[in-house]
């Protein structure tokens, strides 16, 4: 059962998550991605960033947690896409916003927006959820 507040155009409760150095280290460990731009300020600056940046796929991992209240119950993720537009610095707080784009009998489509204090659009994505049958 979906919450009664669920309707097309409704906005999910936003998430505000500080992406800590420890999270970046853990993501490096679990993914095997040890690109120095994620761990070393000077390496990141050499590539034109103001400081070390988080893995793009870490922001995608974090963003998907906004639908956990649904995937813990009746739904599973059929498709999930994201376009990465700007970097997130390690230690910044990102905000994930979800808007219900479409609500069908068996599916829910949610538009996602990831922002940080510097960029209103760090990443944009969409999740299509299917109901378990």
């Amino acid at each position: 059962m979906l919450p009664k507040t669920f309707k097309e155009g409704a906005v999910l409760d936003p998430l505000h998550i500080e992406v800590t150095e420890q999270m970046v280290k853990k993501y490096g460990d679990v993914s095997g991605d040890f690109n120095p731009i994620h761990f070393d300020d000077s390496a990141a600056q050499e590539k034109g960033f103001p400081g070390k940046i988080i893995h793009g796929m870490l922001s995608m991992a974090i963003a998907s947690t906004i639908v956990e209240p649904l995937t813990q119950r009746d739904y599973w993720v059929k498709t999930y896409d994201m376009k990465f537009r700007a970097p997130v610095l390690v230690g910044e707080t990102i905000t994930i916003t979800g808007t219900i784009l479409a609500l069908e009998t068996d599916t829910v489509t949610i538009d996602l927006l990831v922002s940080n204090p510097t960029y209103p659009q760090v990443a944009k994505g969409r999740i299509l959820l299917h109901v378990y049958k």
């Binding site: 793009g56 796929m57 599973w76 993720v77 999930y80 990465f84």
Partner: peptide, 8 residues
């Protein structure tokens, strides 16, 4: 990394 799409 610019775009990523998962399909299940």
């Amino acid at each position: 990394h610019k775009d990523q799409v998962f399909h299940y």
